[in-house]
């Protein structure tokens, strides 16, 4: 027995010493300027349709290694915008102490960047989308490479505006598929800053329009954001399904949006019509591939969100 224990201790020590962290190094090809090409390239690379660098295909964004490669890719494309990518690493306790006793805390990293206002201000708008996938073999093209492609294109458009009266934070959340840990950690991070967050816009799954009605779904507890989205929707003749959220005693916890509701932010979530049954049937499966993404629909929602953001950051 004593020898067995000694052997196990030595083995453990040996294995621990041989654990080496690999550094990601890839040459990321430039992101095209034309919006459709830009979004197709981002979704293709994030879902393994085309390689990142020369040979690396992201078959999923589930393992810590795959998520690290994804972060590296996202960091590179943020820098292609001429912005600084900031990695927000975190450790987070499990949902209950019994689980805490059994396993280690969550560890992960959100990635964000700040597009500054043209005149200094402490007001911030957050655009968020998660980058992880829900299953080990899910490429996550619609869930949620489309959300990433959407906010990337919107931020790129906002950069071109001569005047912006608010800073924009573009954040890619880690571990949304695991109890929204990334966004919960990011909210904690926000609470340590003196930033005044005027609104939060979360996007999850924006690539399916089975009945071709071009509709989107919005969900918010905020009258102000609801009115803004509905008004712009009317201007663009866009069909909007509106889910009014009551923040009092709110317990839902299925996406990053929910965490911001509970934390009391002026938040809105938007995406394809998940609750109105026109949503990708391939969510969290190996079939959530590039081919299933309706890029015409993604483009239409991106143009809609661009109009909303433009209104928010140019209105005094």
């Amino acid at each position: 027995m004593r020898n067995t224990i000694l052997f196990l201790i030595l083995s453990l020590g040996f294995v621990s010493c041989t654990h080496i962290q690999k550094e990601s190094t890839f040459e990321i090809k430039p992101i095209p300027n034309k919006r459709l090409d830009m979004q197709q390239q981002i979704v293709a690379q994030l879902s393994g349709q085309t390689p990142i660098g020369d040979t690396t295909h992201l078959t999923s964004r589930w393992t810590p290694e795959q998520r690290a490669i994804t972060r590296f890719y996202l960091q590179e494309i943020i820098e292609q915008l001429g912005l600084k990518a900031i990695e927000h690493k975190y450790r987070f306790a499990n949902s209950n102490f019994g689980v805490d006793l059994l396993i280690e805390p969550y560890t992960g990293a959100n990635l964000y960047t700040i597009l500054p206002a043209t005149t200094p201000t402490n007001q911030y708008i957050i655009l968020g989308a998660h980058y992880d996938t829900g299953r080990r073999n899910a490429p996550g093209a619609i869930d949620n490479a489309t959300g990433i492609a959407l906010i990337y294109a919107v931020v790129k458009a906002m950069q071109k505006l001569p005047e912006r009266n608010q800073n924009i934070i573009m954040v890619f959340f880690d571990q949304e598929e695991e109890e929204n840990i990334g966004s919960r950690a990011f909210i904690k991070h926000l609470q340590k800053t003196d930033w005044k967050i005027s609104s939060v816009h979360c996007f999850d799954m924006v690539g399916w329009d089975g009945n071709h009605d071009n509709a989107i779904e919005i969900y918010t507890p905020s009258d102000q954001l609801e009115k803004l989205y509905l008004d712009i929707g009317t201007q663009l003749n866009k069909k909007i399904f509106n889910l009014k959220i009551n923040p009092v005693g709110y317990t839902n916890s299925s996406t990053d949006f929910d965490e911001f509701v509970r934390a009391g932010y002026n938040v809105i979530g938007a995406g394809e019509c998940y609750y109105h049954k026109d949503s990708s049937p391939y969510k969290d499966t190996y079939k959530d591939t590039f081919e299933t993404v309706d890029f015409r629909y993604l483009l239409s929602v991106t143009n809609f969100i661009e109009k909303i953001l433009k209104k928010l950051i140019t209105t005094p």
């Binding site: 396993i103 080990r136 598929e177």
Partner: peptide, 13 residues
Amino acid sequence: SHIYHQFGIVGLL
């Protein structure tokens, strides 16, 4: 993913 990857060789040992 969070739980699964705690069962690497170190976690198992």
